[in-house]
Lab assay of single mutants.
Amino acid sequence: NKFNKELGWATWEIFNLPNLNGVQVKAFIDSLRDDPSQSANLLAEAKKLNDAQA
């Protein structure tokens, strides 16, 4: 379904953000699993944090 596809894509993108540490990645992935409907918002937050830590 739509959420599974978005969840998978967001998970892959978060895993590939180079400036996040393992704890941050795990926290974002756990949040995605808790509420897949928020995948776009969580991915945006992860990208912002990644950019801030560059």
Rank of each mutant, 00 (worst) to 15 (best):
L42D: 01
Q24D: 02
Q24P: 00
I29L: 13
L49C: 09
I29R: 02
Q24A: 02
K2P: 13
G8T: 10
N1C: 15
N4H: 10
A10S: 03
T11G: 09
P36W: 05
D34S: 12
A52I: 12
G8D: 15
P18D: 04
L43Q: 02
L17C: 06
D30F: 03
D34C: 13
V23A: 15
Q38N: 14
I29G: 01
N21Y: 07
A46R: 00
L49Y: 03
A46W: 02
K26T: 07
F3D: 12
W9I: 11
G22V: 11
F28A: 00
G22F: 13
L20K: 00
I29D: 01
G8L: 15
K26E: 06
A52V: 10
L49R: 02
D34H: 12
K48H: 06
A40Q: 10
P18Q: 06
N4P: 14
Q53Y: 06
L43K: 01
L32C: 04
E6Y: 07
W9R: 13
G8S: 15
N1S: 05
E45K: 09
G22Y: 13
R33G: 04
Q24M: 03
L42K: 08
S37M: 06
P18Y: 05
L20Y: 00
K26V: 05
D51T: 08
W9M: 13
F3M: 13
D30C: 12
A40S: 09
A46Y: 04
N1W: 01
Q24G: 00
A44S: 11
L7V: 10
P36G: 03
I14F: 05
F28D: 00
I29Y: 05
N41F: 13
E13F: 14
K2C: 15
P18L: 10
N16F: 07
Q38H: 04
A44Q: 07
A10W: 12
N1A: 05
P36R: 02
G8A: 15
L20G: 00
V25L: 07
T11S: 11
F15V: 14
P18A: 08
Q24V: 02
Q24C: 03
A10Q: 05
L42Y: 04
N16M: 09
S31M: 13
E13Q: 12
L42Q: 02
A10Y: 15
V23L: 12
A52R: 14
N21V: 05
K2W: 14
S31G: 09
K48F: 08
L42I: 15
W12G: 12
N50F: 02
P36Q: 03
D51C: 11
D35T: 07
S39E: 06
L32M: 10
V25S: 03
K2F: 09
A54R: 09
N16D: 05
D34E: 14
R33H: 10
L43V: 14
N19C: 14
L17E: 01
A54W: 06
L43M: 04
E6F: 10
A10K: 04
L32V: 04
I14T: 02
A54E: 06
G8M: 15
K26I: 08
K48S: 08
A44Y: 09
Q38K: 08
D34Y: 11
G22R: 11
V25E: 01
D34L: 14
D51F: 08
L20W: 01
T11M: 15
A46Q: 01
W9P: 07
A40R: 12
K47H: 11
K48Y: 06
V23W: 14
A10D: 07
K2G: 13
A44H: 09
D30G: 05
Q53D: 02
N16P: 01
K48E: 07
K26R: 10
Q53G: 04
F15C: 15
P18N: 05
S31D: 04
Q24L: 02
A10V: 15
K2S: 13
G22W: 14
Q38S: 10
S31A: 14
S39T: 12
K47N: 04
P36T: 03
D35F: 09
I29S: 02
V23Q: 14
E45L: 11
L42V: 14
N50L: 02
E6W: 10
A40M: 11
E13R: 08
N4I: 10
G8Q: 14
N41C: 12
K48M: 09
F3H: 12
A10T: 11
K2T: 07
D35H: 09
A46H: 01
F3V: 12
N21M: 08
Q24E: 02
N21Q: 06
A40F: 09
N1L: 06
K5S: 15
R33Y: 15
Q38F: 12
E45Q: 11
K47I: 12
L32W: 04
Q53H: 04
L42F: 05
V25A: 04
W12Y: 10
D35Y: 07
W12N: 14
K48A: 13
L32R: 00
L49K: 03
N4T: 10
I14W: 03
L7P: 04
V25M: 07
L32S: 00
N21T: 14
N21I: 07
N19H: 12
G8P: 05
D51Y: 06
L32G: 00
F28M: 01
W9D: 13
N19Q: 03
S37W: 05
A10C: 14
A52M: 10
E13Y: 15
E6K: 06
T11K: 09
R33C: 15
D35P: 00
P18C: 13
K48Q: 09
G22N: 15
E6G: 06
N41G: 07
A27D: 05
A54F: 07
Q24R: 00
V23K: 12
I29N: 01
L32T: 01
A54Y: 07
L43D: 01
L7I: 11
I14K: 02
N19I: 01
Q53M: 12
E6D: 10
N4S: 09
S39D: 03
L17W: 03
W12D: 15
D51H: 07
E6M: 11
N21G: 05
T11H: 08
Q38G: 05
L49F: 02
N1K: 12
F28P: 00
Q53K: 04
Q24Y: 01
R33K: 09
A46P: 00
K48W: 05
N50R: 01
V23S: 12
K2I: 14
E13A: 08
A27F: 13
F28H: 00
S31N: 09
N1M: 04
S39G: 08
A54P: 04
F28I: 05
E13G: 02
S31I: 10
I14M: 03
W12F: 10
V23E: 11
N16K: 06
A10I: 15
W12K: 12
A46N: 00
P18G: 06
N50Y: 02
R33E: 08
Q53N: 05
K2A: 13
R33S: 06
K2H: 13
N4C: 15
N19L: 03
S31R: 14
A54D: 07
A40I: 10
Q38R: 13
D30K: 13
L43H: 02
D34P: 00
F28T: 00
I14G: 02
G22P: 14
A10N: 03
N41M: 11
K26Y: 07
G22I: 12
N50G: 02
D51M: 11
A54N: 08
N41P: 10
A40D: 08
D51Q: 08
Q38W: 03
A10P: 07
D35S: 05
S37K: 06
W9F: 09
A46V: 02
Q38T: 05
A40E: 09
Q38A: 08
D30N: 08
G22T: 10
L32Y: 03
K47Y: 11
S37N: 11
S39P: 02
A44D: 09
K47Q: 10
A44L: 09
F28Y: 05
Q53S: 04
E6T: 07
K5V: 11
N19K: 02
K26F: 05
K26A: 10
W12V: 12
P36S: 03
